[in-house]
Amino acid sequence: MAINIVSWIAVGLILATSAAILINRDWRVSLGALAVQYIAAFWLITRHLPFVMGSAKLITGWMVIAALGMTRLSLSAKEVDNEETFWPRGRGFRIILICIVALVAAGSTSRIEAVIPGLGLQVIAGSMILIGAGLVHLGVTSDLLRVILGLLTLLTGFEILYAAVESSILVTGMLAVTNLGLGIVGSYLLVAGTSPSEVGDEI
């Protein structure tokens, strides 16, 4: 019973952090929210995987955040193009989007549980929110850091669901490499094209 309550809290945390990443424009808030999101995802993953494998995912996620954070910190404001080039792009629009994601996740959770029994409602709900939020994020941004955040969110959602059906160490390892790779590729793309003399202006 207590475990179920904690799991639902984790789902709530996932919804809140996904909304924060999608709505907030400050990269520090987004990365902080992603770090909290990994804790919630870790809890849901350990419903089906051993604690050690779950913690490997948590540590990988935090390493990715550290890499992205350090890279973003080293860039000056003029090197980062945060302006989205399409409409609608307001905060209200994003709030509506995350509400739609939450509604779709709420609607689909019980149906997926009926098709694939044994996963657990909390696991499915958390996973669907993350996948939905990741997809929505990818749909409304062209900013590099935000694209990487969207992909990481989506992958975390998938990993929660996949952990319930596949417990291979090799898969866990390769998914961790994929996450790390995304972080490194994201960092590389963020610094690519920036002149060395300008790096560190804001530190």
């Binding site: 590099l144 898969v171 390769m174 998914l175 490499v177 994929t178 790779g181 995304l182 490194i184 590729v185 590389y188 793309l189 610094v191 690519a192 094209g193």
Partner: peptide, 21 residues
């Protein structure tokens, strides 16, 4: 998974360090 990791390794070939992605 291996195809995805290989795809990520391609990125540094496509974007050179002095080039905006």
């Amino acid at each position: 998974l291996l195809l995805e990791i290989a795809a990520m390794l391609v990125i540094p070939l496509l974007v050179l360090p002095f080039q905006k992605p």
